[in-house]
């Protein structure tokens, strides 16, 4: 398979970026990131700097990888991270436009790499359950109804990739925040902190993310299919605590 690639290159946060054009020939069993690896090998061979992009696990769980491919965060295959996209999914497309997440709260560091540490700061603001190491009661003293545990689990599968922000016209992190609030807030263990949602939303605001206007683009691109119903859950919790 032969592709023409248009890849965003930007030396650092302060310089101007532009699309750089490359050609590549790969087999259909190659993953999207392996295709970029191959391109980078060629670049290094010819004395050029490799294209910087984030990745680690390459199995869809760490949330590192984050490319906008032909305008869609994470690419064409729905409910799939960038690293789990395969070139066979792009058969019939000769041109690929590859860009970083774009959001004020995620400044570009280099090429396709952005700074997502704002997400860490949102979690630091309240995305946890307070429990001193060693002070936990026996685990089975507090049964949790299975449907509640399952619901909490679904919300807890968020990988913190930031695609929801990249897709949102307001660059809002509401889905990310709601996933955590809904995970912790639906479990009995997490119900002590009534201010969690408020603290995290405030932090979201301070970090420069926009608010939610119900576009629901976030849900469409989320690789873990985090549902916008979590936003409803969060709003309920907010309402109850005010």
């Amino acid at each position: 398979m032969i592709f023409t690639l248009h890849i965003w290159r930007q030396h650092d946060a302060n310089s101007q970026g532009n699309f750089e054009q490359h050609q590549i020939d790969v087999s259909e069993d190659t993953s999207f990131l392996e295709m970029l690896d191959a391109l980078n090998e060629q670049l290094i061979q010819t004395g050029q700097e490799a294209i910087a992009f984030d990745f680690d696990c390459r199995e869809g769980i760490c949330g590192s990888c984050n490319l906008v491919i032909n305008g869609t965060p994470h690419g064409k295959h729905r409910a799939t991270t960038t690293c789990q996209q395969y070139m066979r999914d792009y058969a019939g497309e000769n041109e690929l436009w590859i860009e970083p997440w774009r959001a004020t709260a995620f400044p570009i560091i280099k090429d396709l790499i952005v700074d997502r540490s704002a997400f860490d700061r949102i979690i630091q603001a309240g995305g946890y359950i307070e429990i001193r190491t060693g002070s936990a009661p026996e685990a089975n003293t507090m049964p949790v109804e299975k449907h509640i545990a399952d619901h909490a689990f679904d919300a807890a599968t968020c990988i913190g990739c930031g695609a929801c922000v990249a897709a949102c016209p307001n660059a809002s992190a509401t889905l990310f925040v709601a996933a955590k609030v809904s995970h912790l807030g639906s479990l009995p263990q997490g119900q002590m902190d009534h201010q969690r949602a408020r603290k995290m939303l405030l932090a979201m605001d301070e970090q420069g993310f926009g608010g939610c206007s119900n576009y629901r683009e976030c849900e469409r691109v989320c690789p873990k299919e985090i549902s916008v119903s979590n936003i409803t859950t969060m709003n309920k919790l907010l309402y109850q605590s005010s």
């Binding site: 946890y128 359950i129 429990i131 190491t133 060693g134 002070s135 936990a136 009661p137 026996e138 685990a139 089975n140 507090m142 049964p143 949790v144 109804e145 299975k146 545990a149 909490a152 689990f153 807890a156 995970h183 912790l184 479990l187 263990q189 997490g190």
Partner: peptide, 22 residues
Amino acid sequence: TSIIDQAVAQGVPFAREYSGYL
């Protein structure tokens, strides 16, 4: 055994039986 206690208290959503127990 203390690890499981700690994790459950932190909100780690381990699989549960229909009874609600782990």
